[in-house]
């Protein structure tokens, strides 16, 4: 009988994301996973309330807290190995922690591991996984050969969170804080990633093209970007007309961006600009000219005046925001 275990890292504050990723991996999870454990690794700073809150989110009935002095993979591996049975499946989030754990656990237990998976089918007999290969050009399906099966999720997977169960959680705690830790890493200094802001890291970008017509048009678009909480960028004709600053330039001589969503406004879609936005998750093109090349390279197109559409979009989003605040 297969047991499905979930391993979560409470040293990181994104447990919900980890669970969502793991749920995104497999639709069977909600049913079958109950048979196994959720391991939550964290430090001694977790109090009973924290633990209770985390246990409630866990997708299994049985929750095991592993308390460590610091995030040390060796200690976690030891702990997982101790409780392991033949046929077990271990599921991890997409972080480098999840990836490392999946690979090491698979190797150490003579099982198999798969990393960065988009999908996993966990039947009683065979385990299949799907993952992107060849720089995201192809989706590969693999059959996993040996038990136990250790699988980490792909970045950005999103699955429905398990509903809070009615049944009581069974909570256990394993305290590893008193153990001897191998000391191969010392003097560790942590620096938090500064939200660098700007176009390179923005998840939502509005790019203005020649269709903004003049400085006033570009300024209006920049304000619209602010209104919809998007970063503002511009095509080469716009910056070379000094309608926007040079550091707003998107494309081969400026920023190559990869936001989740990119709206282009009055952009024709010249090769030099498109190369800069090609990696966007979702492209929305607004242009008066329905024959502009950009209209065939976007996910969604709107044939209309870009200023008018964006003004309307800003109003629509402001209203939505107000509703949400009220609901809170």
């Amino acid at each position: 009988m297969k047991r499905f275990h979930v391993v979560l890292n409470a040293f990181s504050d994104d447990i919900e994301k980890q669970i969502s990723e793991i749920c995104g991996l497999t639709e069977y999870l909600l049913e079958d996973v109950k048979k196994g454990n959720t391991f939550i690794v964290g430090d001694g700073k977790m109090d009973e309330d924290d633990k209770h809150r985390l246990a409630e989110m866990a997708p299994t009935k049985s929750v095991i807290f592993v308390i460590l002095k610091n995030l040390h993979t060796e200690m976690i591996l030891d702990c997982l190995m101790e409780t392991m049975c033949f046929g077990d499946v271990y599921l991890f989030g997409s972080s480098s922690f999840g990836q490392e754990m999946a690979i090491r656990l698979g190797k150490r237990s003579d099982g198999s591991s798969a990393t960065g998976c988009q999908w996993a089918a966990l039947s009683e007999s065979i385990v299949y996984v799907k993952k992107q290969v060849y720089s995201n050009h192809m989706m590969a399906t693999f059959c996993m050969e040996n038990s136990p099966f250790c699988i980490s999720a792909a970045r950005g997977l999103e699955g429905a969170m398990p509903k809070a169960g009615k049944s009581e959680k069974e909570i256990k705690t394993i305290d590893k804080t008193k153990d001897q830790y191998p000391a191969n890493l010392t003097n560790t200094i942590f620096e938090e990633k500064k939200p660098s802001g700007g176009l390179q890291t923005a998840s939502f970008v509005l790019v203005g093209g020649r269709g903004v017509k003049n400085k006033a048009g570009a300024d209006a678009l920049a304000r619209a970007a602010e209104g919809i909480h998007a970063e503002f960028g511009a095509s080469r004709p716009v910056v070379m007309n000094a309608w926007a600053a040079m550091d707003k330039l998107i494309g081969v001589s400026g920023s190559m961006i990869h936001p989740k969503v990119c709206i282009t406004a009055g952009v024709s879609g010249a090769a030099a600009l498109y190369a800069g936005i090609e990696k966007s998750g979702f492209i929305i093109a607004i242009n008066r000219d329905e024959n502009a090349p950009i209209m065939r390279k976007a996910d969604v197109v709107i044939v209309d005046d870009c200023q008018e559409v964006l003004r309307a979009l800003q109003i629509c989003m402001e209203k939505e925001r107000a509703d949400e605040t009220q609901a809170d």
Binding site: G251, V252, S253, M256, A272
Partner: peptide, 11 residues
Amino acid sequence: NWGAEQIAEEK
């Protein structure tokens, strides 16, 4: 590759 990406990488 006709160059658009390469020009960016070259810099």
